[in-house]
Design a protein around this nucleic acid. Structure first.
Length: 589
RNA sequence: UGGGGCGUAGUCAAGCGGUAAGACACAGGAUUUUGGAUCCUGCAUUCGGAGGUUCGAAUCCUCCCGCCCCAACCA
C-alpha cells in the first residue's frame, strides 16, 4: 500500500482531499472530526474511524475535533463521555482545546429551525409517529403529504415556539422539513427535525423539552465547526442529500462528506447494541472484559496502542463491506509485543520435577536473557534448585511421533539451565496419573552446550518450586465460536422468516428469505479459562497492573488490575504461534 | 419491482489503457537453548458474468448477475 512520510496509507479519501487541495475548495485547509454518541464504549471499529480522522488531520497539517453527537438524552451518559476520551487518548490522539458537543449548538440549531420555518421550508406536523410512518410510503411507493404540510409561516412559528416552551405533551407534534414526499430517497420525505422529549440531558439538564434529530444536528454541527471533510460510514451515504439540503437552504459552510466501510472482525461482534447486550446479560464481566473488542477491553487484555494502529494501517480504508480475519490483528499484536516484551518463565499447569542428583539445599542464581530480540534489555537472575515445576504438557509418558519434549529416558534442556534426563515417574496410586517426574541432570550443561556435542532437541521452561510465586492466570479465546456470529445457517437460505424477535419487535423485517441464527447462540462457552495455582518466577512478584511480558513458550501476558500484593493475576494477551499445537490438531482430525 | 453503494486469491487490499503490488492465512524448506523470532520458496495465465471499443482492457462502453444499506420522533 502506498505510504506517505508519516507512514499513513493513501486511499480514496486522501485522493479526494488532494483534489480539493489542488482546486482550492477549502483554501487548502483540512479539518476533520470524530463524532461519537456517548451511549456506549468505543470498540476497535470506532478506532478505525477516529484514527482515520485524526490521521488525516495529522497528514495534512490540519486539525481534528472531538465532538459528541449527543442529541438523544435518553441514551447518553457521562460515564461514556469520560471513557471515550480516555480511549482516544490511549491511541495517541489529541484534540487540543477542541472538545465539543452537539448540545453546545442547541440554541443555534433552534435558530436554524426558525430560519427554515420562516423560509417556508419547515412545518409543525401533528401526526403521530405511527401516522408519519404510514404516510411515508414504502421503498417502491411514494408517501403522501401531511394534512399539516401547508400551515402558514405564522402558524408554524407560533406552534414551534410553543413546542419549545413546553406547551405540548411528548410526541404530540414534530417539526418537519418540507422537502418531497415522493422522493425515491426516503430521507427526503419530509424528515423530522425536532421532537418533543421531556428527558434530562447529561449536559443541558432540563433546559430543553425539544431535541433536534441527529439528521438535523449533524451536518450543521460540522458546518459550525468549519469542518472541511466529514468522514462517516457507508450507511450515511443516503443521508448526504438531506444534509446538503439543510446546508444549502441555510446558506452556511458546506463540508464535503466522504463515506467509508466500517470495520468488521471475525469471531466477534462489532455493534454497541450487541456489546451492551453482552455486558447487561452478564456474558462478559463488563465493557472492559478482556474478551471484548472494546478499546478498554483490549487495553486490559494487554494490547498496545501501537499494535492497534499498525493493524489499522494494514487493513486500509475502502468502501467495500469487509470482514477482517482476526488473525491479522493478532499478527500485528505479536509483531509489536515480540520486540518489546521482556521474557519471563511461568508454569501454568505445574508438574513437580525432582532432580535426584542435585543437592537438596543448593540454590543457583542463573543468568537469563531478558529479550533475545533486544540485547539491550539485559539479563536477570533466576533461581534454580532441586525441585522445580514444569508444564504438564511438556511431559508425555508415551511420546507421540515428533514430540521432542520430556518422556521416560529422554533428555531435554531446562531453559537457561541444565539438561535433564527423565529417570522415573511417580504416579497417583488411585488414578494412575503422573504426579511427579524424577530426573538426573548433567552438570556439564549448565547454561549452554553439551560436553560431547550431543543435540538436545527440546527446551522447556520451569520455575524453582521453593522460589515460585503463586498466581491466577486467565486464558482467553475468541468470544464466539463462529467467524460470523449469527450468520445465516448453512442450508437454511430458503427458510421463511419465522416471526419477530423481541429486539426487533418494532422493526418489521422485510419478508426475508434467509434465516439468521441468534447471534448469542454462537457465544463461545470456553472463551475464558481461569487457572489458579500457576507458578511464576520470583522476578514477577509484585508487578504493577498493566505490566506486560512474554511467558516463554506460552504467549504474551499482562498483569490485571485484579492483582493483589500477594497474588498476581495475569491475562493472556495472545498466545505465541504454536507449530506443535498445529501438528497435534492436524493429527487429531 | 424505488433509491444509494459495492464486486480483484481463503481474508484485507493496491491497481486509474501497456500486460495482476503488499499483508494475513495456508503449504514446504533453512536455522534455532522459546516447536517463538528470523530467513528462503510456493500460493489469481486472471480481476462477478457476457458482449463491445482498442494494437492492447481489472481499468472505457453496454447488458446481466450477486452482496450491502434505506420505510426510528436512533445515531
Amino acid at each position: 500500500m502506498p505510504k506517505n512520510d508519516s507512514g499513513a496509507s493513501s486511499n480514496f479519501i486522501t485522493e479526494m482531499i488532494d483534489a480539493d487541495n489542488e482546486s482550492g475548495r477549502f483554501g487548502g485547509r483540512v479539518h476533520t472530526r470524530f463524532p461519537p454518541e456517548p451511549n456506549g464504549y468505543l470498540h476497535i471499529g470506532h478506532a478505525k474511524a477516529f484514527c482515520l480522522n485524526f490521521g488525516l488531520a495529522a497528514r495534512y497539517g490540519g486539525l481534528c475535533n472531538l465532538r459528541y453527537d449527543d442529541t438523544n438524552p435518553t441514551k447518553e451518559e457521562v460515564e461514556y463521555v469520560t471513557a471515550i476520551q480516555e480511549d482516544v487518548r490511549w491511541l495517541g490522539w489529541d484534540w487540543g482545546d477542541r472538545l465539543f458537543y452537539a448540545s453546545d449548538y442547541f440554541d443555534k440549531l433552534c435558530e436554524f429551525a426558525f430560519r427554515l420555518i420562516r423560509a417556508g421550508k419547515a412545518y409543525v406536523c401533528d401526526l403521530s409517529a405511527d401516522q408519519i410512518r404510514e404516510t411515508r410510503g414504502t421503498l417502491t411507493r411514494p408517501g403522501s403529504e401531511s394534512p399539516y404540510r401547508n400551515r402558514s409561516v405564522e402558524e408554524n412559528l407560533n406552534l414551534f415556539e410553543r413546542m419549545k416552551a413546553g406547551e405540548f405533551p411528548d410526541g404530540s407534534r414534530v417539526l418537519r422539513a418540507k422537502i418531497d414526499m415522493s422522493s425515491p430517497n426516503l430521507n427526503m420525505r419530509d424528515p423530522v427535525m425536532y421532537r418533543i422529549l421531556r428527558a434530562s440531558h447529561h449536559r443541558t439538564g432540563d433546559k430543553w423539552c425539544i431535541y433536534p434529530t441527529y439528521d438535523f444536528a449533524h451536518g450543521q454541527s460540522d458546518s459550525i465547526e468549519g469542518i472541511t471533510h466529514s468522514i462517516c460510514s457507508l450507511e450515511f451515504e443516503d443521508h448526504r442529500p438531506l444534509y446538503d439540503w439543510y446546508l444549502h437552504n441555510l446558506g452556511i459552510h458546506h463540508p464535503r462528506q466522504i463515506e467509508f466501510a466500517r470495520l468488521n472482525l471475525t469471531y466477534t461482534v462489532m455493534s454497541k447494541r450487541r456489546l451492551r447486550e453482552l455486558v447487561e446479560a452478564g456474558h462478559v464481566r463488563g465493557w472492559d472484559d478482556p474478551r471484548m473488542p472494546t478499546l478498554s477491553g483490549m487495553r486490559r487484555r494487554g494490547y498496545t496502542p501501537e499494535a492497534i494502529r499498525a493493524f489499522l494501517d494494514t487493513i486500509g480504508v475502502a468502501k467495500r463491506d469487509s470482514v477482517v480475519d482476526i488473525a491479522l490483528l493478532e499478527h500485528c499484536l505479536r509483531e509489536d509485543l515480540n520486540k518489546r516484551s521482556p521474557r519471563r518463565m511461568a508454569v501454568l499447569r505445574p508438574l513437580r520435577m525432582v532432580i535426584e542428583d542435585y543437592p537438596e539445599d543448593r540454590v543457583e542464581e542463573l543468568d537469563a536473557l531478558n529479550n533475545p530480540e533486544d540485547p539491550a534489555a539485559g539479563t536477570r537472575k533466576v533461581p534454580f534448585s532441586r525441585v522445580v515445576y514444569v508444564e504438564k504438557d511438556d511431559f508425555r509418558e508415551v511420546p507421540p511421533p515428533k514430540f521432542h519434549r520430556l518422556s521416560p529416558g529422554r533428555e531435554v534442556r531446562l531453559r537457561h539451565s541444565y539438561c535433564v534426563r527423565c529417570v522415573g515417574v511417580v504416579k497417583d496410586e488411585k488414578t494412575g496419573e503422573v504426579v511427579e517426574i524424577r530426573c538426573a541432570h548433567d552438570p556439564e550443561t549448565k547454561g549452554e552446550g553439551t560436553p560431547d556435542g550431543r543435540k538436545v532437541k527440546g527446551t522447556i521452561h520451569w520455575v524453582s518450586a521453593r522460589h515460585a510465586v503463586d498466581a491466577e492466570v486467565r486464558l482467553y479465546d475468541h468470544l464466539f465460536t463462529r467467524p460470523d456470529p449469527g450468520g445465516v445457517e448453512e442450508g437454511s437460505e430458503e427458510d421463511a422468516y419465522g416471526g419477530v424477535d423481541a429486539a426487533g419487535a418494532a422493526r418489521v423485517p422485510p419478508a426475508a428469505e434467509a434465516a439468521p441464527r441468534d447471534w448469542k447462540a454462537d457465544i463461545n462457552p470456553s472463551s475464558l479459562a481461569t487457572l489458579t495455582g500457576c507458578k511464576l518466577e520470583p522476578a514477577l512478584a509484585g508487578v504493577a497492573p498493566g505490566f506486560r511480558c512474554q511467558f516463554e513458550r506460552l504467549g504474551y501476558f499482562c498483569a490485571d488490575p485484579d492483582s493483589t500484593a500477594d497474588k498476581p493475576v495475569f491475562n493472556r494477551t495472545v498466545t505465541l504461534r504454536d507449530t506443535w499445537a498445529k501438528i497435534e490438531k492436524a493429527r487429531r482430525l
